[in-house]
Write a protein that binds this DNA or RNA. Structure first.
Lengths: 218, 218
DNA sequence: GCCAATCCCGAACGAACGTTCGGTCTGTCA
DNA sequence: TGACAGACCGAACGTTCGTTCGGGATTGGC
């Protein structure tokens, strides 16, 4: 109508999103003011509102644009795995490759988008219910892919696991991968690919262990 | 002098800290106002300042009081391990017990202090430099204990690992343990002890694998 | 019965917040 | 050349923020 129709047609410039993510990743959403963002992006306070409707939508855009490539990549890997299935002989190596590639994709993207990932992990709570739901659905779809891969890896190697056991183990894997936000730096810890391989090895070696306590499954 | 000398002598009531931690864990430090805290704790806005000097000190107290018991417990476990050493025959089971107990202590405390742990993970950045440094030192001492345990576990089982490899593996362990803040609930996932056992098994089985890529160690 | 200490409150302070409004500048296309 | 749209700005709006101030209850020791 009169005010700039915000989001989709005229996309918010990437440099604004990147610099906002950098600021918010260290100060949090509520701890970062629009004036901070204006100063950092070299724009005026009111000029920012030309690119998004309000602060909360900016947070949504950081989440959405930061997470979408990661999800798209994971969905591609899964569909490749599915289309290459039907040959039961190669099932075990195929499921291993899927899991390994997913971990590699995740850590590779994480390592080069640390700020966005930090913002992503702070949660959807400051977002409007519509935006929050949209981001949570992206995360759920992503989690489902990893659960699928973990389940495939286990059941091509030993008897199938229960859904709750697969979920738990998937969360442990996410823990190892996502926790790097607090400590990983390329200079100190080397390339993300090598780290991905270590996580893959650690997880798969531990993953196949028999269930340690039946108490966990009701 | 005139204003209430804040911290140590007359400790801040535990219920204020607990309710503040609950609020801050879901809204973040900057997203939680003093008026929110007053409403939740059933006190007046100005009445809160009788118990701490300012909002930032409240955050420090949540961190300090929340983390100290965990650190104390870990230090007790390590000193028990050290005093029981000197019998090289039992070295391997002893180091396994240390690691297992540490994980159990961590998850047990986490599971019953989820709010405080969430606040703890949001970081020391909003704190003054003095308070931030104090909390960071507590975390470092705690991390050192886990590095020590992981190192002991490895070198009583195979040739010793490099310091950087021990550090990396310790961080993977912390990742599995701390990531539960996002998904763990007693009702869905059972008691923390069983989860601790699963993490211990997963980690130790994967931990002893040979270094997957020499690229990680310079 | 009094004093001091502790705990707590209502009301207000200045500063910072997210957002809006009217206007300018810089192209592009007719 | 003129009209128009997109990108941007300075100044201000009303609200909320963290913090302070003067004072009122309640309590325990003397």
């Amino acid at each position: 109508m009169d005010t700039p129709p915000p989001t989709d047609q005229q996309p918010c410039p990437d440099d604004i999103l990147a610099q906002s993510a950098a600021l918010m990743s260290s100060q949090g959403y509520h701890g970062t003011s629009m004036r901070d963002l204006a100063r950092t992006t070299g724009r005026s306070l009111s000029g920012l509102y030309h690119h998004f409707a309000n602060k909360e939508e900016l947070l949504y855009l950081i989440n959405q644009r930061g997470f979408s490539p990661l999800l798209a990549n994971a969905e591609r890997l899964r569909s490749e795995y599915r289309s290459g299935n039907g040959r039961p002989v190669a099932a075990a190596p195929a499921s291993a490759a899927l899991l390994c590639d997913l971990i590699g994709s995740h850590l590779g993207y994480f390592g080069s988008h640390l700020n966005e990932m930090r913002v992503l992990m702070f949660g959807t709570q400051p977002m409007s219910s519509a935006h929050g739901k949209a981001i949570r659905q992206l995360k759920e779809r992503y989690t489902e892919i990893f659960k699928f891969a973990v389940g495939q890896y286990i059941e091509t190697r030993r008897e199938a696991a229960t859904a709750i056991e697969i979920e738990r183990k998937t969360y442990l894997l996410f823990g190892m991968m996502n926790w790097i936000f607090g400590w990983y730096s390329f200079d100190e810890h080397g390339p993300a690919e090598a780290l991905a391989e270590e996580i893959y090895t650690t997880f798969t070696k531990g993953c196949l262990a028999l269930r340690p306590a039946a108490a966990l499954d009701e």
